[in-house]
């Protein structure tokens, strides 16, 4: 089937491109840096109390360290997901390869679906790689401290799976934003700019709104970053309560609203792409 062939080619293209590997490498370095930073804070900072040191060390041990690992993945990964999706989509415009492929009678929706599925799959793989390396960092730290312990709770497998999938889902939401921005602006640079602006501007705008109180504060609950935090409350490291100290959506409701947002965004993106002339500005 043509759609599967397109997905396969998209995955091959991602595998053979340097940029995704560089991004993943930088991300893994930042994860390693996180473990090192927390470790040095626990071990060397004179202002850290013994109780805090114990808590920090415990938080880095296997399997407790997954919370910190996933939280860091969420914080850094969202912007990387925007960059990744923007690059992958926008460069098809700047290189002219979009015209090349579509002039062979490939349906436009197939092309977009193929790219989206490849992006989602890549993020999933990136999450697996992150878990692999994160586990390595945790175990390495435990070995150095001589505190290695492989005792796991009964629900460990389920918990780590669902927690990772929730973070992957949030990364996919942000990748969709980068993807849509690139398709609509027809450029990786513009898409990247629009996606990144959204990520940063949204936080600033809705934080300002929440300060205004009343209706505006209520509105801030519907911001993507707030909803993402609400979803990750199920992972026990969401920060919704930190914003205004007021109510937040349940993780399920937040996920449903995010899904609705992305569905609307994708419909707009697909319609725009299907109706647009792919010449001149392309």
């Amino acid at each position: 089937m043509m759609i599967f062939r397109i997905i396969r080619v998209e995955l091959i293209k991602i595998r053979k491109r340097q940029a995704p590997w560089i991004m993943l490498g930088l991300f893994l370095i930042s994860i390693a840096f996180y473990f090192l930073a927390v470790s040095s804070l626990a071990d060397a900072n004179p202002e850290t109390t013994q109780a805090d040191s114990m808590r920090l060390r415990e938080g880095m041990r296997f399997p407790n360290g997954y919370d910190g690992l996933l939280q860091t993945t969420f914080r850094i990964g969202t912007i990387l997901a925007v960059i990744f999706a923007s690059l992958l989509t926008g460069s098809e415009y700047s290189w002219g390869t979009l015209r090349q492929v579509l002039s062979r009678g490939i349906p436009r929706t197939y092309f977009l679906v193929g790219k989206l599925v490849a992006i989602f799959f890549s993020l999933f793989i990136a999450m697996l790689i992150t878990l692999f390396f994160g586990t390595g960092f945790m175990l390495a730290g435990d070995m150095i401290r001589g505190t290695i312990d492989f005792t796991l709770s009964d629900d460990f497998g389920w918990t780590i799976t669902t927690d990772s999938l929730r973070v992957t889902m949030i990364l996919i939401v942000y990748a969709c934003i980068g993807f849509a921005a690139s398709v609509i602006t027809r450029s990786s640079a513009a898409g990247l700019g629009a996606g990144a602006l959204f990520v940063f501007a949204e936080v600033l705008i809705f934080s300002a709104l929440s300060i205004l109180g009343g209706f505006w504060a209520e509105l801030s609950h519907y911001a993507v970053y707030r909803l993402a935090d609400d979803v990750l409350m199920a992972n026990k490291f969401g920060q919704s309560s930190d914003f205004a100290g007021d109510w937040s959506f349940s993780p399920d409701w937040a996920a449903a609203i995010l899904f609705l947002y992305i569905a609307i965004l994708m419909v707009i993106t697909f319609i725009t792409f299907s109706r647009r002339d792919l010449k001149g500005a392309a």
């Binding site: 397109i6 293209k13 491109r17 290189w95 002219g96 390869t97 015209r99 090349q100 062979r104 010449k279």
Partner: peptide, 29 residues
């Protein structure tokens, strides 16, 4: 378009792939 091959404006390929890989990618599609 099943039986049509075209170059629109300039030939466009993925710069990070080899010529052969570019051709293979299109062939797969």
């Amino acid at each position: 378009l099943l039986d049509v091959g075209a170059i629109v404006e300039d030939p466009a390929f993925y710069p990070y792939l080899s010529g052969r890989d570019n051709l293979l990618a299109l062939a797969r599609i």
